[in-house]
């Protein structure tokens, strides 16, 4: 966890906004249709309460944008045969996800295909 991430949580708590740590209430927040992004894995955060795949993607102007792709809890992934090495930094991937309705570079993971053709998750 980066210091900036910790910092904003601390700042929010100090401001007395009555915020509390939480994870995923996505009611009405996720598009139904999947989109596809192509990029390079920056980090696979195989941690609870949910795993996240951080993918660096070049936008139309050539600028790199970091996408946050949320996946299942690691416990379930372990039972499905995945592990922290399923994605490694530097892996070239095409990822299908259902994006957040805000249009932010984030969404929920459907599946991915790596440069070697191996498939992770659902890729129908």
């Amino acid at each position: 966890m980066k210091s900036g991430f910790k910092g904003i949580i601390t700042a929010i708590l100090l401001l007395g906004c009555q915020l509390a740590a939480a994870h995923h209430s996505t009611v009405g927040q996720i598009e139904e249709a999947s989109i596809e992004i192509s990029g390079v894995v920056k980090e696979f955060q195989f941690k609870n309460p949910h795993s996240w795949i951080q993918v660096m993607v070049k936008d139309d102007s050539g600028e790199e944008v970091e996408w946050s792709v949320e996946w299942l809890i690691p416990n379930i992934l372990m039972r499905q045969g995945y592990n922290p090495a399923t994605f490694r930094p530097g892996d070239e991937v095409r990822v299908r996800l259902r994006q957040h309705v805000s249009g932010s570079p984030m969404g929920e993971f459907d599946g991915a295909i790596k440069a070697d053709g191996s498939i992770v998750g659902r890729w129908d």
Binding site: K2, F5, G7, I9, L19, H23, S25, Q29
Partner: peptide, 22 residues
Amino acid sequence: CNEYNRAIVDEQGRSMILDEDG
């Protein structure tokens, strides 16, 4: 559950998702 929680609930009850830099 608190290992790496990237979401917080605001005072309205909305879930906010944070990026790597908060």
